[in-house]
Amino acid sequence: MTAIVECRGVTKHYRLGTIDVAALRGVDLTIDKGDFASLAGPSGSGKTTLLNAIGGLDRPTKGSIKIEGHEITALNANALADLRLRKIGFVFQAYNLIPVLSAVENVEFILQLMGVEAAARRARAKEVLRDVGLEGLENRRPARLSGGQQQRVAVARALASKPAIVLADEPTANLDTKTAEDLIALMSGLNDRLGTTFLMATHDARVISRTRRHIVISDGGITSDERRKLAEAEPA
């Protein structure tokens, strides 16, 4: 298997005035191509910190992080921005979309940042929106989409650049049960069909049960990491 992400001895300390908060305490973690993994743990355990470090949003205090074999901890701000643009797809809990752009424009936006030419951009944006089941809603602005539809646009945008990995930070936290299950089913399907690698921080048991790899983090350290056969989806 090819390693998409390799974390070795990753620690992260935050300084809060004079207090030193250790958010990550020596994380070793490898995410393989095609993984559909959940990163579970109580609030404050370090899930967001780890995702941000892997996604090049934040630099670890110590340790090494490689994306597709390339060390990213020494990259400068612009190189990290490029890494996020081309190799990483982020999906957050909320405020994912640019409010003044329609669904299709939100997806196109990153392709534009990448320098993709107009026709190819539009075609690719429509394609990924179709992949997430939003055909027909392309021209709506975020304010006129439901919470679940907004998260689907965010997933579509994360996929648009064909990134090495999609990092989702509590993507279902703001959704009702049914919508949350639909979203996780969608991501699972994308993982199956397109082979996209997902790492999702969550503390939602239903989300965890739908993933094939269960990573548990507690107090800044990985405490368990198991692979399971996916349970059959219970009938709704």
């Binding site: 996604g55 949003l57 701000a77 612009n78 921005a81 490029d82 996020r84 643009l85 081309r86 990483i88 982020f90 957050f92 405020y95 994912n96 640019i98 409010p99 936006f109 990153i110 940042l113 990448m114 945008r157 650049s161």
Partner: peptide
């Protein structure tokens, strides 16, 4: 500010 954070997360450079 939060929106700018999101824009940076999806790959926009701060200078942009």
């Amino acid at each position: 500010t939060r929106e700018f954070g999101m824009l940076m997360a999806i790959g926009m450079r701060p200078a942009q």
